[in-house]
Amino acid sequence: MKDVYITRIATFLPNKPIDNDQMEEKLGIINGKNSKARRIVLRNNQIKTRYYAIDDDGNITHNNAQLTKEAIERLCDESFTTKDIAILSCGTSSPDQILPSHAAMVHGFLKNGNLEINSPSGACCSGMNALKYGYMAIKAGEAPNAVCTGSERTSTWMKSEIFENEVEHLKELEDNPILAFNKEFLRWMLSDGAAAVLLESEPKGAALKIEWMEGYSYAYEMETCMYAGGDKLENGHLKPWSEYPAEEWGKRSLFAMKQDVKLLGENILVKGVDSLKLAMKKHKITTEDFDYYLPHISSYYFKEQLYGELKKQGVEIPWEKWFMNLSKVGNVGAASIFIMLEELVASGKLQTGDKILLHVPESARFSYAYAYLTVC
């Protein structure tokens, strides 16, 4: 089995950063009233700026596949071009369409010749699953390199017009036309962007060796928490959009991203630390065995709580090992972990031999992904 190294990382964040006061201007006001939930969510998540693929005139500047293509091109130069890519593995929570696959659409924009593609579906873990596919392919000697990506373009999923039909329907029913907090919660959390990493079997200059990767799912015991393209019923089951008549799609905002906030708060950290302990036990490491801990969290609201849960379950990680950049770039879902890692590498803090632990949760139905890296 071959060793696998991250030899390059690149990111692409579209347009200029958007501060908290500009968000509703970009995404639109629902029912003619400023959101009350916005202030609550922003106070808790402590995100200061994020990025949208929307220009100053409200025009869409990039779709998801185009964001990903931009990140990949920034990964390349004269010594490694897009034509040298052997495997293209692209993860996202927000593909531009149901079919063709996300990686196929990215490949279409690259126009770089024949190669193998892979499109893991899911939410935040899809970026890590894209990475694991490339990791396993190179480790098995099946390919000389792989470009693995995580990306999101969720801003258009959160624009006010997505919810207008539902609000109008509520007015007709003479109900209070205010969106449920579960639907509005994610509106003020998510950001657009993409990141790409190059995997190779030999380090070329500074590199990060992937020692191992692990993934865990709790879907066998947990109901759906975050979803899009369906509606959650009172019994906890998810009814897909394809089982609703077309006229109901807008009335129920079926294609908006939604979060069961209560289920999230009760379980995301408990299961996250449980799965972390499983990974650490399997690979016989302790919190003493890594120098940097990169947890992807959706909100700084969870930072202190995560620390508390780690301590409660006996795997306390000192604050000096934590590294995050959520407040500057927002929650970019599948891309967040790579954007964090790129900033850490660029910071100049890393020294040869340092160990890095990546920790990515996915609240969709509670999945978790891990990677353990060594600085070369």
Rank of each mutant, 00 (worst) to 15 (best):
E243M: 14
E243Q: 14
Y244L: 14
P245D: 11
P245T: 07
A246W: 08
A246G: 00
A246D: 13
A246S: 12
A246C: 08
E247G: 03
E248M: 09
E248Y: 06
W249R: 05
W249E: 06
G250I: 06
K251C: 09
S253T: 11
L254F: 03
L254T: 03
L254C: 04
F255V: 12
F255L: 10
F255A: 11
A256R: 02
A256H: 06
M257S: 14
M257I: 15
K258D: 08
K258N: 05
K258E: 08
K258T: 08
K258H: 09
K258R: 05
Q259W: 15
Q259S: 14
D260S: 11
D260F: 00
L263E: 15
L264N: 12
G265P: 04
G265E: 06
N267V: 07
N267K: 02
N267W: 01
N267H: 09
I268F: 05
L269P: 02
V270K: 07
V270F: 07
K271R: 13
G272I: 12
V273Y: 03
D274V: 09
D274N: 08
D274K: 01
D274L: 01
S275F: 03
S275E: 03
S275W: 01
S275P: 05
L276W: 02
L276I: 06
L276C: 06
L276S: 04
K277A: 07
K277T: 13
A279S: 13
M280F: 01
M280T: 03
M280R: 04
K281D: 13
K281Y: 02
K282M: 12
H283P: 10
H283D: 13
K284L: 11
K284C: 11
K284E: 13
I285W: 01
I285G: 00
I285Y: 05
